[in-house]
């Protein structure tokens, strides 16, 4: 999965051409516990890397999800509104949050690849 990149805040971004699908990692969902609500990003929003992109709520608390890359939101996973537990069940598959049209490919260089992210997790 050489085209998947990770942030220190446990978002992933999977790149296909100039479209990046993002969500939270399996580690993130396991830390959150049962997800009961997701506020997915609005289509058409221009996100800056590191800006608040979505909100994920467990029984206990609300957590912000930050945009792993900059660009325009071209698709949101509205299925999560009715089935937030998908984030627990398949975070890096059906539990994706949104798709961003990359505005700056070079931002990817600042993110971790899968091996780096695994190494990072082992330090937590």
């Amino acid at each position: 999965m050489g085209n998947t990149h990770y942030t220190k805040d446990h978002e992933y971004v999977r790149v296909d051409g100039d479209v990046a699908t993002f969500g939270i990692t399996d580690y993130a969902q396991s830390q959150l516990g049962d997800v009961v609500f997701v506020e997915v990003p609005k289509v058409g929003t221009h996100l800056k890397q590191g800006a608040e992109a979505a909100v994920v709520e467990s029984v206990k608390a609300a957590s912000e999800v930050y945009a792993p890359v900059s660009g325009e939101v071209i698709e949101a996973n509205s299925a999560l509104e009715g089935a937030p537990a998908t984030v627990n069940e398949d975070p890096e598959g059906k539990g994706w949050f949104g798709k961003i049209k990359l505005s700056n490919q070079s931002e990817l260089a600042a993110l971790m690849n899968e091996a780096d992210y695994k190494a990072y997790l082992s330090t937590l």
């Binding site: 516990g33 467990s58 206990k60």
Partner: peptide, 12 residues
């Protein structure tokens, strides 16, 4: 203990 492995929803 805030939760056990099954999680808060299941415990509830």
């Amino acid at each position: 203990p805030v939760q056990y492995p099954t999680g808060i929803l299941t415990e509830h």
